[in-house]
Structures are given as C-alpha cells and as structure tokens.
C-alpha cells in the first residue's frame, strides 16, 4: 500500500491500533482497558516472576504432552481408517462428531473422572487436537499413489513397515497441516482446560487477575498466550513449506 508516495509496511495497521488502544486507555474510558504501554510494562514485570514462570512451565508441559499424545494416537488412527473400510465405518462418524462438537462442554466430565489436576488439562488438549489430526492423516493416506502402496506390498513390506516407510512419509504434507491445525486447537484446549480447572497454571492466574480486577496483568497474560499460539503456528507453517517440495511429485 502507498499513501502520498510513501510505501506503508504491512504491520503499519498494528501501529494504528496500538495508538488507538493507548489513547483509549489514557482517557480512562473503560476500566477493562488500561493503556497499552502500561500492559507492556506489566508484562515485562510479571513474566520473570516465579509464579508466572511456574504457570508457563505447567502450561507448556501439559500442552506438549497433550499434543504428543494426540499425534502418536491420531496419525496411526487416521492411517488405519484410510486403509481399513471397517475401521473407517466404525470410527469416522465419531471423529466427525467430535470435530464439530462444542468440546468445552465435555471438560467438566473429564474433570469429574480425572480430578482438578494436570491429567484433566492434558486430556482436554488431546480432546481438542486429535480429531483434525486423524482426519488429515486419513486424507493424506487416501492421496498416496496406489502404485507406491503396491510397491511396498510387492517387496514384502509388513503392515508396520508400510506404515513407517511409506504411509507416514507419503502423507507427510497432510499430516503436518493436520498437526498444525491440531496444535492451534490444542492451544484453545490448554487454555480452556486451565480456565475450567482454574487451580493450576495460567487458569489460576486468570482467575486471580480477573477476580481482583488486575486488568494490566490480565492483558499481559493474554499477550503472552497469543504470542505463544502465533509462534507455534508460524513455526509449523514454515515446516510445512519445507516438505511441500515433494508433495507435488507424489502421484
């Protein structure tokens, strides 16, 4: 975009919004909106505190564990569904149901079964992330050229060998975009899980800040979470572009 002959960089709109935020905050128009500068200052202040780092550590740990479980179960499940009509018929309705269901409503059920701890949060992450990973792995295996499958069979590959050497690699572009979408959902899962459990990690901090009306703290925490989700998404998108080169040469 150009204004009066000057090239305006893409992130210029962010500066405009930042200024609007800052002005609104300084005018004191609303209590939930402290000035942006105060939020940033607060963020720099609270991020290194032990409470915050502990919350960050527990969030990262539950998030990564949940994503790992979702990938380790989801990818083989998608491959099996793509290769077996019976399994596909059995599982596909459930996968589609859970993909579109309001999963937040299920978190209290998990809480009743597994208590107010990390297990509940990890399971919430898995519940949010796994379905899209399953569906993408399934679509990826459907897209594998049949002759590659025949090739593995003709050289005597076992099911496990075919999975490890052919399916995972040939379906890798779809699997990776499934993982990226799953991870985005997992961020929702880890936040919602913590908010509902509300005695551990960021959930406890959110509860603390909002109940005491510490809006600067509250926004600082949100910034950190948004940056976390954005960085993960960008990192995975970069990885996806790296493997794209052979996706075109598959068929």
């Amino acid at each position: 975009m150009r204004i009066a002959g000057y090239r305006i960089p893409l992130f210029a709109s962010l500066i405009v919004w930042a200024i609007i935020w800052e002005v609104t905050g300084r005018l004191g128009a609303t209590l939930v909106m402290p000035p942006l500068s105060a939020v940033v200052a607060r963020m720099i202040e609270i991020v290194p505190t032990p409470t915050f780092l502990a919350a960050l550590w527990i969030t990262g740990r539950t998030f990564l564990t949940g994503v790992l479980i979702a990938v380790v179960i989801g990818v083989p499940m998608g491959v099996i569904m793509a290769r077996s009509v019976i399994m596909d018929r059995l599982l596909l309705p459930w996968v589609n149901l859970f993909l579109s269901a309001p999963l937040t409503a299920l978190v209290p059920v998990i809480m009743v079964l597994f208590g107010f701890g990390e297990t509940t949060i990890i399971l919430t992450v898995v519940l949010f992330a796994i379905w899209i990973i399953v569906l993408n792995a399934r679509a990826g295996v459907h897209a594998i050229s049949p002759s590659l499958v025949d090739m593995a069979a003709s050289f005597g590959a076992t099911h496990w060998q075919a999975f490890r050497h052919i399916y995972v690699w040939a379906a890798l572009p779809e699997i990776l975009s499934g993982v990226r979408l799953g991870v985005i959902r997992a961020v929702k899962g880890v936040v919602i899980g913590q908010l509902l459990v509300s005695v551990v990690g960021f959930g406890r901090l959110f509860e603390l800040y909002s109940s005491r009306f510490l809006m600067e703290h509250f926004w600082a925490l949100l910034f950190v979470l948004f940056a976390f989700a954005f960085a993960i998404n960008e990192g995975l998108a970069w990885l996806e572009r790296k493997v794209e080169y052979y996706a075109a040469s598959r068929s």
């Binding site: 050229s145 002759s147 590659l148 025949d150 090739m151 003709s154 050289f155 005597g156 050497h165 052919i166 690699w169 040939a170 890798l172 052979y246 040469s249 598959r250």
Partner: peptide, 15 residues
C-alpha cells in the same frame, strides 16, 4: 521374494 515388480509409474519414494 522370488518375484519383483517394475511399475508403469516407477513407484519411487520421492523422499
């Protein structure tokens, strides 16, 4: 193992 197949579309692993 006593038979080997050569495919019309080569069936090579691109990776």
């Amino acid at each position: 193992p006593e038979r080997a197949f050569v495919f019309q579309d080569f069936a090579l692993m691109p990776w």
